[in-house]
């Protein structure tokens, strides 16, 4: 059994893949609770798609994909802010317009400029393609996410729970929102390496959704999200290695299974409590 677990790790690229997967899962899981409870799932999905043109352009220009992606995400966030600002249109409408426009541009650029295979892993992830420099970047993003969340935890709490009070004490909820969007953009960019643009939403939403079935406390939700994300990544990784299937979908399906189990547990518990209360 131990041999089965250790065997894949004897290859450097496989080991890097697992480390990359764990780092991406860690960064996403840290933000997951805020994505779920602040209702940022749609904008998270939009960001993941909106980075596509940035990635393609960076690829063509030969600069780091990370920076191309981050630039595209920044433009998308500002665009969404401008369209929905001053209450002209609702934010989800603005997100819909920007998200689909950017993604279409990305697909067009991909089809014109590169072969599909070159950037196919951006859409679906390629955990075994993680390089040493990627790992350094991913570690940087995880460290930054941890530091920012630890420093501004109480600020995020008040801006999320009661924006009016937040303004009254001089803390702009918009600034906090942009801070979270910035973190979201960076974690999304590192996570597309492992699960791809299409499935990255799962890493951002499903862990905290499952954890929220089990606990109502934010810190517990965050801790459980972390545990489930890391477990799903390890399980998905080995299944993908031995089953010879793509890692992204297996990680996502493992997380989804965790959610189904948590959902079932929560309903069973509620049912039992109601019966006991009678």
């Amino acid at each position: 059994m131990i041999e089965l677990l250790l065997e894949p790790l004897s290859y450097g690229f496989v080991l890097r893949g697992l480390a990359g997967g764990l780092l991406a899962a860690l960064a996403c899981a840290l933000l997951s609770a805020f994505v779920v409870w602040r209702g940022m799932a749609f904008v998270g999905d939009a960001l993941a798609h909106a980075i596509l043109p940035g990635v393609v352009v960076a690829y063509v220009l030969g600069i780091g994909l990370f920076f191309g992606a981050l630039a595209a995400a920044a433009i998308a966030v500002v665009g969404i802010g401008l369209i929905s600002g001053r209450q002209r249109l609702k934010e989800d409408t603005a997100i819909g317009v920007v998200f689909s426009g950017f993604f279409a541009l990305g697909v067009l650029l991909m089809s014109r400029i590169t072969t599909y295979q070159d950037l196919g892993h951006i859409l679906f992830g390629n955990i075994l393609g993680v390089g040493s420099s990627d790992l350094i970047l991913m570690s940087g993003v995880v460290a930054l996410t941890v530091i920012v969340l630890a420093l501004s935890y109480k600020e995020i709490l008040v801006a999320s729970f009661d924006p009016a009070h937040s303004v009254a004490i001089g803390l702009s909820p918009t600034a906090i929102r942009y801070l979270l969007l910035f973190l979201l953009a960076m974690t999304t960019v590192v996570a597309i390496q492992t699960v791809g643009v299409i499935l990255v939403l799962s890493l951002l939403v499903t862990p905290a959704a499952a954890a929220s079935m089990v606990s109502k406390r934010l810190r517990t939700i965050m801790a459980l999200s972390l545990a489930m994300s890391l477990a799903a990544t390890v399980i998905g990784f080995y299944l993908s290695y031995y089953g010879d299937v793509a890692s992204g979908p297996v990680i996502v399906l493992t997380l989804t299974l965790f959610f189904v189990l948590a959902f079932a547990w929560s309903h069973t518990k509620d049912h039992l409590l109601r019966c006991a209360g009678r």
């Binding site: 409870w37 999320s160 729970f161 009661d162 924006p163 009016a164 934010l218």
Partner: peptide, 12 residues
């Protein structure tokens, strides 16, 4: 603030 401006579902 008015009740409707607070996100009562947020876990605090």
């Amino acid at each position: 603030p008015q009740r409707s401006t607070v996100d009562w579902r947020f876990p605090v």
